[in-house]
Design a protein around this nucleic acid. Structure first.
Lengths: 203, 203
DNA sequence: CTAGAATGTTAACGGCGCTCACATTAGCTC
DNA sequence: GAGCTAATGTGAGCGCCGTTAACATTCTAG
């Protein structure tokens, strides 16, 4: 018998709402997250979550924060501490795959008009930023770390969104991986050739 | 007296809905587009738009398509036919500024789970894709045009979204422009293995 | 002129976010 | 343990939303 049930008080509804929300996001591919659905899933009345989350935005921010942590895990799993462009590329592929495998979560993390002053959320994104900057500084030691980190994040983030929106074909994971790799490679090799804009060098 | 009013039939409700939607998007910075609000703005009953749009998605797609056209105009205004990295950068800045000046529209264009098979929408994005590839092929003649076009679009698109979501500071337009420029230059001057990163672009 | 297509209105359904009054319980104090 | 208080749940209800169905008005073709 589950000790957390059959009682008027739920036990830990706050956490239960969070995992219910995660479940719903995994199941229903693209539909928006509804507080009432979360309450239903948690086996609780529609008003109950409001004891733990000020409003829908608060729940969404908590979900997003959790999403950032899971994304960080996923990236670290792709490569613990990349130090070459190839390794960085594998991290980039992992980023895009995360977005494609969990589109609803990714959209909540980045797609919604967000609450800037939610501390949990900003803290989680700050962690991602830091992690990324560290990696970039290691892979490209002789560049402006901040600008380079911004650029790579934006590049990868943009690739994720364009695939997510169907602007780029995302039918098979390997095709996506190839495209991401090709895009990064193209950008990184652009300079050596176009150091002077008018110089057309043989490839 | 306005000839288009005071009659039972509206005249051109389809177009009126579109422009009403645009107005609402400009006014209410970030709130979602509601079909009922559009109907109110057009001075018509809540059910009337359904004679011209199958559902909310259809209206949203039409708005998005119009947004793509306006974005294309805006990019062309930044530079009619860029052929150097600097000129391309100015187009990139225009892209990000468009996103920041019209966040609600931009979110509708890219942020919503979109209807892949809406022809108007796909046609408009195809136009953007083509335009971009053409530019990129001109600026970087000796690279794989498709990969490079994908990469630059993703980079710029990612920059736009990260600013939009507050992941990057977007308080002043000039700061944004500087960051975009710096990011692009950082990427273009980053050479992985072949070392020399200091070969910056001719200014 | 008239029939029917096109385009509008009104009313209604269910789902949503959210609030308020109320019920139940947990935990602290004595 | 008994009793008070705060925390946490329920239920009813508000207004908004998307959407549909039945009905009204107007345009247009024959």
């Amino acid at each position: 018998m589950p000790s957390t049930k059959a009682t008027y008080h739920h036990g830990d509804l706050r956490a239960a709402c969070l995992s219910a929300a995660m479940e719903l996001l995994e199941e229903s591919g693209e539909t928006a997250l509804s507080l009432r659905a979360v309450a239903r899933r948690a086996g609780v009345s529609p008003a109950a979550p409001y004891r733990h989350y000020a409003d829908r935005e608060a729940l969404v921010s908590a979900v997003a924060a959790l999403g950032y942590r899971e994304l960080a895990q996923r990236l670290a799993a792709a490569h613990p501490s990349p130090s070459t462009p190839e390794q960085l590329t594998s991290v980039a592929v992992a980023y895009v795959q995360f977005a494609l495998e969990r589109p609803a979560l990714f959209r909540i993390m980045f797609g919604e008009p967000c609450n800037r002053d939610n501390e949990e959320r900003t803290a989680a994104t700050a962690a991602v930023t830091l992690y990324l900057r560290e990696i970039v500084a290691r892979v490209f030691p002789d560049t402006d770390a901040e600008a380079m980190a911004t650029a790579t994040w934006a590049l990868v983030h943009g690739l994720a969104f364009l695939h997510l929106d169907g602007k780029l074909d995302a039918s098979t994971p390997s095709a996506v991986a190839d495209r991401v790799t090709a895009a990064i490679h193209a950008l990184l090799s652009a300079t050596s050739h176009s150091g002077r804009a008018s110089a057309v060098l043989p490839s």
